[in-house]
Design a protein around this nucleic acid. Structure first.
Lengths: 195, 195
DNA sequence: CGTCTATTTGAATGTACTCAAAAGCGGTGG
DNA sequence: CCACCGCTTTTGAGTACATTCAAATAGACG
């Protein structure tokens, strides 16, 4: 397969010459998994940053009562990892699972460190995407503190219009922080009011 | 004043020589404010990263109903900024306020960019602290999705044992995401059960 | 000392959850 | 190709955690 998508993703923030592109690409591993495959399990040490070239992953935790909470969806052109575990190299508590058949590129922690040494520009790249991710998480935190479930759902719909029709409703509920039953009732109510 | 605290903070992640330290320090501005002073206001563009050398700041938003939600406390040795606004240089929606008389060092966005050019190691430094902040925010998001108010309060107490007795209870309520009234009742109940 | 804000307490209310059961939907094997 | 199985979604009744509003008390600051 080609690496067009990931190189374009990188090019959003830093400029690589041909040699650098080649080095970068040589550090990636390709992986293809079937829908529902679990790529990382709670308790494992996360050893890779994952870039999705096709399909969709989700990162989620399972709490003490057995409920799942979705931390992030990673559709095409997104990065995902258990940042805590990746950085500390300790057991994490994130699960990463394929929502559909998915193709991805893996950058191991070791290779990522190598990249920082050989092409310091990548410090900048990962700084910038981490900053963006932080901003998004802060906003989501504020939303969870200040919005009602219905407002959070509506916001989700506007931010991820593509995902709404592709994801099982259960997963959306686990992302916005309500039970699947309640999301179902909420939608029914919203529909009524629109008539 | 001396810059010992901030240089120690930097030294946690990167090593600077004497020239680099001098250059870095020359890019900082010192500021001292009285308790309750608002340093950044919702709607402003955030132009600095702030490092607290003494005292304590808080970053908070005000929602549509006028309720405050605390995104972060920044005691001594912490960095704080409205990351969204700082990165985009657009109007933000974070307020930053002094909880007590506070001394801080300001690194303007312009100087931060200069720093990246002159001492690329700082890319690494800010990448690392952004990563750590991201991990903390992700954990807090999961906690908000999976824990009850009481569990969140207890966790706050263990993570910030120093802040518990220094901060007004109202502020802790605005951080863990409950009303001040409810936090009061919760504490009373927890006290009863401990007897 | 007086004022202003924070905290406590109480009663009524609401948003979202739990548990249970039925209906819908998709995939798989016969 | 249909029938069945498992999983998701819907619907309903009862419940709980947390909020709202109001009033009293306590604390902090000038």
């Amino acid at each position: 397969m080609s690496h067009t998508i990931i190189l374009k993703n990188i090019a959003k923030h830093i400029t690589l010459n041909t040699n650098e592109e080649a080095l970068f690409v040589s550090l990636l591993e390709y992986q293809k998994v079937k829908s529902k495959k679990i790529i990382l399990r709670q308790g494992d040490v996360c050893r890779h940053s994952i870039f999705v070239t096709n399909g969709c992953l989700r990162g989620f935790t399972i709490d003490a009562n057995g409920f799942e909470h979705v931390l992030s969806f990673a559709p095409q052109d997104w990065w995902i990892a258990d940042m805590y575990s990746l950085l500390s190299q300790k057991a994490g508590n994130l699960n990463i699972q394929a929502m559909v058949d998915t193709e991805m590129l893996l950058l191991s922690k070791v290779n990522q460190e190598k990249l920082y040494l050989e092409i310091p520009k990548f410090e900048r790249f990962f700084r910038i995407i981490t900053e963006k991710s932080l901003v998004a998480h802060q906003q989501r935190l504020v939303d969870n503190l200040s919005l009602t479930a219905q407002q959070r759902y509506k916001k989700f719909c506007t931010i991820y219009p593509n995902l709404i029709n592709e994801l099982p409703q259960k997963q959306i509920a686990a992302y916005i922080g309500v039970t699947p039953e309640f999301l179902s009732k909420m939608k029914a109510q919203m529909f009524k009011k629109n008539k």
